[in-house]
Write a protein that binds this DNA or RNA. Structure first.
Lengths: 347, 347
DNA sequence: CTGTTAGCGCCTTCAG
DNA sequence: CTGAAGGCGCTAACAG
């Protein structure tokens, strides 16, 4: 390991001054003459000095690093979020360590331990579908590491959250389906343990009621909302629920799965069955134009989460009051030329 | 900062032994009695000890961390690749620091510096579209940090690469279009500076020749292959190149852009114009069924790149001979029911 | 098998 | 404004 061996002592020796002065100069401390700073900087450059971040981190017990835990990177919403996180972190001089829980609580717990052990300055977290309590976050709290939850949030008080108004988004989505003439709207629901999916379910239900439509429990199909789940749900609908003319999916993955399946059976979307799913809106044009979506704006959420986290990091050691930021979602109709005819003149 | 303050010295004191023994025990060194190990482990647990990774890293001058630089995380191919990288790294006890160059050489250069400064054990890199030479990688080389290029590769000798057989994939794609009856196939080409796009261009050209079709330079449309570029290209085709009946796009982003645009103009895909694009194959079902793709299998490439990198890391200080792994791509027809009729009976 | 000793490279008191 | 000294927590010789 022939690592670059230039240390502050080397450049101190070369200049016949003390290493502490060099350290100060390199940190641009006001307590060093401009002249000596210049000399030191020049020499450092000349000798190809590079600060040993490890030593610096150890001494300061700070790493300038943010840890991020999300369920799965390749999901477009999360990769967009990471993009926002990474950019904001970068602008503020932070590195990002990024990990995926793969929806497993055990992995999530391990990752929190790893991040704490690596002395990250803060954690951004979107919990797994298995995560029902927050014991594993105690470790971070005890070590004074601020945490921001995003998207999938933590509803016990005293935490920082960046969320979407899931209730409103779902309400709007369902309302939109009704306005397009749908009367029997199925709901692809996520695990009810997650607050987020509870809210999406509630928005769906109350939009039905507000429109004078009956809530039909058998039209709610529970799953983990993977693509396959969406396809299975679509199959179930075709085989046993012929009355269904609209689907509100609690995420985009299942919505796409359902859509592909229905298209394969030559069902016209949205004319025969209209579909709305949560998704990462405007940037996600690979989503089929026939699919209307509720914009999750992952990148924006990522930025907001990171800004909030950095604020909390800078506030140490006196922690700021925890904040919850709620984004209002927007409904995006990709293909506004196609209107679903009002095939049910009743009501 | 009320960080968990338990150190090996604390537990050594509590047990009236030396801290070095504690250190050895915690590293499960064979040179400590099983009995004392047990006592130490128990005590460590009891006192809530957590190794200070920073100190350990400093001492060992090793971080157990892999740095990854890619152009943009939210591109599906890259997020899939990261997924593979992260999983493989995790299985082997490595952390991952992930950064995006946003296709800027300047950012890429800075990131390499940051990673080296952070003493990552290895680097996985997919170069930006601006990157034409590899001067900025000198720093990593000088510090003995192994590097693996993937997807967008480095064709100067002596480097580790994990690549797709771009030539073959493009050849197959073009050949497929011909077999579907296309006779005037446009090519959405990427920056010719990148070897990868050169190869894709060559595959296209030679497939035409092999099939006895003339190569028409005006059917090659150059761009950076963003979605907008694809849409612009499609517009150009509609307005000035009416003979075009097939499009081979050098990436999926532009292919989707073109497809959406054409669909908006009520062009039937693939009946009127067939499109094939490079993409991340089987996992990417959000890609429209009408679009045939060349499978890039990002996740697999990520895994292979990481395995290769770890092999190189473990080989230090005597570096292994550099390797180049080339994956053979597969053509994926999503919607095999739709066959393009041979509307050009000539040839 | 265990203890002693000596740093890794940097930063931060405390003196002058 | 600069120098001297000590230590962050851990590990790796080297002895015994």
């Amino acid at each position: 390991m022939q690592t670059n061996n230039v240390t502050i002592h080397d450049i101190a020796a070369a200049l016949k001054i003390d290493s502490s002065t060099v350290s100060r100069a390199l940190n641009n401390s006001p307590r060093v003459t401009q002249k000596t700073k210049q000399r030191i900087w020049a020499k450092a450059q000349e000798m190809g000095y590079q600060r040993n971040v490890l030593a610096s981190n150890l001494r300061k017990n700070k790493t300038n690093t943010i840890g991020v835990i999300i369920p799965r990177i390749s999901r477009f919403f999360f990769s967009s979020a990471i993009e926002g996180i990474e950019e904001t972190a970068f602008e503020n001089g932070y590195n990002v360590i990024m990990c995926q829980s793969l929806e497993k609580l055990e992995r999530e717990t391990n990752l929190v331990q790893t991040l704490v052990a690596n002395r990250v300055d803060g954690i951004i977290l979107s919990i797994s579908m298995e995560t029902l309590d927050y014991e594993h976050m105690e470790l971070a709290r005890k070590n004074g590491i601020p945490t921001v939850f995003f998207d999938r949030h933590c509803d016990i008080p005293g935490n920082n959250n960046v969320l979407l108004n899931d209730y409103q988004g779902s309400f709007d989505a369902t309302d939109h389906l009704v306005s397009q003439g749908c009367r029997n709207i199925a709901h692809l629901a996520g695990p009810r343990d997650l607050k987020l999916y509870q809210n999406r379910f509630n928005g769906y239900k109350e939009a039905l009621e507000k429109n004078g439509l009956p809530f039909q429990p058998d039209l709610v199909i529970d799953s983990n909302l993977m693509e396959e789940d969406g396809a299975n749900a679509a199959q179930k609908i075709l085989e046993t629920l012929p009355q269904v003319d609209g689907i509100f999916s609690a995420n985009d993955v299942a919505a796409v799965g359902a859509m592909q399946f229905l298209k394969g059976k030559n069902i016209k979307i949205p004319d025969e069955i209209a579909i709305v799913g949560f998704s990462n809106g405007p940037t996600s044009s690979v989503i089929d134009p026939a699919l209307t979506t509720v914009d999750q704006s992952g990148k924006k959420m990522g930025r907001l989460a990171t800004e909030l986290l950095i604020k909390q990091i800078n506030a140490k050691p006196i922690p700021l009051a925890p904040e919850t930021i709620i984004l209002e979602p927007t409904l995006i109709q990709r293909d506004s030329t196609q209107k679903k005819p009002t095939i049910h003149p009743n009501t």
